[in-house]
Nucleic acid binder design. Structure first.
Lengths: 199, 199
DNA sequence: GTCTATACTCTGATAGAC
DNA sequence: GTCTATCAGAGTATAGAC
């Protein structure tokens, strides 16, 4: 593992858990077990380091999600596999949604430009195209809006991770309760989405 | 309007739009049209000011939402009025969900304690009790989980406001598109939730 | 209560030796 | 490439006059 790799890895830990503003270059250098001087040698500014971390994170996310729609399946199976893969990825990386949304809110312009340049595209198109196709076939409700549907999907999937603290407080959940809740979540979301397609 | 009121009001603007870490005491004092010294005379620390702002915000939110469940209606009507009131409140205060979640993530312990002390309770109970009741009456699916249902509701309602920047990028929306999307959102969420209760 | 001036601390970034 | 030492700026908080 090169020094640069160790820095990126340390920066991910720090940025994911603290957010950009609360993250400290000092803390990142300690995590990477180097000194601040060397950190600035590799990345001239904190912002430059974040840009790198953000881009890597986002690309990994999109890549790992893409597999959900790359094989033959009907619309209901596709919904199930997209939700399942999203949930799996989030359970493995629970701080991801909050991190991404935070960054997008902090500096939308910068990240938009970078992502466009790298042609980073969200893997939503296959799901939405499938909805359109089946709609015209009469397989689902005639007035389904693919965009609203897609946003329902990601809302229900990501929100419990973004708002973990709020949810556990409001519903008086223990950590065990929360994990149990997550375990049932895939099934719940899939069911809700499919019901909304049918009637 | 007293000086204290002007400070609170200015602090809300600043904290809502910037978040705690990026908010500046200097900027708050300018918004309130006083100087920094006086600001610290009223609120000894930035943290103390935030505690006050957070508590007021949360209580206003809960109070304004409570009206959705305080009159006679069947379960489907109740779902519709809860979603409608939530959406109205969010459209009026679009930065609210992001602000609350940010704070909850920044310092859960502190806010939990404060809210418990003030007996701030989320207005979820009536909705969830209604679900339980109708479930035993056979009016809806037997295996609906009220907690999952409630979280579906707030996920779909709050997420578009938390993730506005992400959504507009991913779906290539203009501001006009986004507003159009929001206008249809109440109907969409209500439909989805009711479909999930029935089948 | 309100203001001006200032102390103190933290942090990102740089300079320069090895 | 890696380290030590240091700067410059920003930001919260305080002291003290009015």
């Amino acid at each position: 593992m090169t020094t640069r790799d160790r820095i990126i890895s340390a920066a991910k830990e720090e940025f994911y858990s603290m957010g950009y503003d609360a993250a400290r270059m000092r803390s990142i250098s300690e995590r990477a077990e180097i000194n601040k001087g060397l950190l600035h040698y590799y990345f001239k500014t904190k912002e430059a380091l974040m840009v790198e971390v953000f881009q890597e994170t986002f690309q990994d996310f999109f890549r790992s999600i893409a597999a959900a729609t790359d094989h033959d399946q009907d619309v209901f199976e596709m919904v199930a596999s997209v939700v399942e893969l999203y949930m799996e990825h989030m359970i493995k990386n629970p701080s991801l949604p909050y991190f991404i949304i935070n960054e997008m809110n902090r500096d939308p312009e910068r990240h938009f430009k970078r992502m466009k340049k790298a042609a980073v595209q969200p893997p939503f198109a296959p799901m939405m195209q499938m909805i359109e196709k089946v709609k015209s076939n009469g397989g689902i409700r005639k007035d389904v809006d693919p965009e609203q549907f897609m946003i329902n999907l990601i809302s229900m999937t990501l929100f419990p991770f973004i708002a973990k603290n709020m949810l556990t407080y409001m519903h008086g959940m223990s950590d065990k309760d929360y994990n149990e809740f997550l375990k049932n979540r895939t099934q719940e979301i899939t069911h809700t989405l499919i019901a909304s397609l049918k009637a």
